[in-house]
Design a protein around this nucleic acid. Structure first.
Lengths: 213, 213
DNA sequence: TTTTTATACGGGAAAAACCCCGTATTTTTA
DNA sequence: TAAAAATACGGGGTTTTTCCCGTATAAAAA
């Protein structure tokens, strides 16, 4: 009896070709293909035969991998989720595991390893790609450390403005606040991010992906 | 007689599965697979039967798509190169065409369109994915406009330092120059990038990928 | 050979940023 | 209910950044 697989990936080329490959292993059957989380939700509705394992891309439009993993974990906790990603982005890996994934594979993975990974997930319920230089324990600890930095809604708005050419005077005008209030937000964020200049603040905000270019 | 295809992509999963898919079309034969430009160079050496079309990923380690396309164009001008990419990054598209590609496909592409694209490349020698909302003429013009901004070696070093928390005084010390000299570099770059602040300069430098986070 | 650009550095002044202190009210958290 | 945090804004002062002007020499380009 073949293991039933679901595939979620926005790249049609990859999706279709991966499907072919899995079928070629002769122990898996791809019974569901979706291009994003929303698409998956639609296709899962009313489906009598569910996939046992879902291979889930991390980066997708409309509804990304993390959101999708959360939804699957909540609604179909018996389905095992394996994350697929382009690169070993620490934050994404952490988020995917937290969302309920039991395995994480890079798209670098050789097909032989994919087969092995699926096999182990079938047998043991999880797959740990330590051999791929991903130390999950270290990542979880790192995540915990970064969680300290919480910024308030107004600080976030200020930060958005600060990552531009506007002067503090202009930002104050934009936010309908006094320059002194703006000074206060700046000080607060300097402390939270442990920086001493606006440039430093901007770079840190970009690194933490609180703002984008 | 099947069209001979070469595949260059660092993601083994994608590479192998794409290979399977192409074979499934029954008009193509994948005769070469490489994980990057260097690997391709090694595998092309002494090869008696060459691929007629090469599907070439844009983002690869060791030797990226642009470099690889250039090398192929110089050494095997008869091979038709099709770029494959995750996203429609204007700069990458421009560079790939300039490097000699005659087609550009996103990894979003449906397999049916891949087949169609390969067919057109076989018949006409090129494929234009306008339907995919990529306006190549606009991109070329944009590229020409951006080429104005040339910075000198010393400006580049200063820029690197400027994208940090160092004050201009500290940067002067680092570069063994006077603060006035640093002022001069700042002025020059403000003009070249059309900005009025250090934050603006940093953001622009990051956008142009002259510095990284 | 001449012109232009890059590199290096000077003066001065105004504006902006940063730093440190404080008060007050409202909202959120414990 | 009380304490803490968020939000708003005041004072003052120092440092840094930005802006505008200029000179000089060496290297590169025309």
């Amino acid at each position: 009896m073949k293991t039933k697989i679901g595939l979620v990936d926005d790249h049609q080329l990859f999706l279709k070709s991966l499907s072919l490959m899995l079928e070629s292993f002769n122990v898996y059957e791809v019974i569901l293909e979706a291009s994003n989380g929303k698409d998956l939700q639609g296709k899962m509705k009313g489906k009598k035969i569910l996939p046992e394992i879902v291979l889930l891309d991390v980066n997708m439009p409309v509804m990304n991998g993390i959101e999708t993993a959360k939804w699957l974990t909540q609604n179909y906790p018996e389905i095992k989720i394996v994350a697929l990603s382009m690169n070993a982005d620490d934050n994404a890996i952490i988020s995917m595991f937290k969302a309920g994934c039991c395995g994480y594979l890079l798209k670098d993975t050789h097909p032989n390893e994919l087969e092995k990974a699926l096999d182990e997930i079938n047998k043991r319920g999880y797959y740990n790609a330590d051999a791929g230089n991903i130390n999950f324990r270290r990542l979880i600890m790192k995540a915990d450390k970064n969680e300290d930095v919480r910024i308030t809604p107004k600080e976030a708005i200020f930060l958005q403005h600060a990552c531009s050419e506007l002067t503090y005077k202009q930002i104050a005008s934009e936010m309908n606040l006094s320059e002194r209030t703006i000074d206060g937000y700046r000080e607060a964020l300097f402390k939270k991010f442990n920086v001493q200049s606006r440039v430093g603040l901007c770079l840190e905000a970009l690194r933490k992906e609180l703002v984008s270019l």
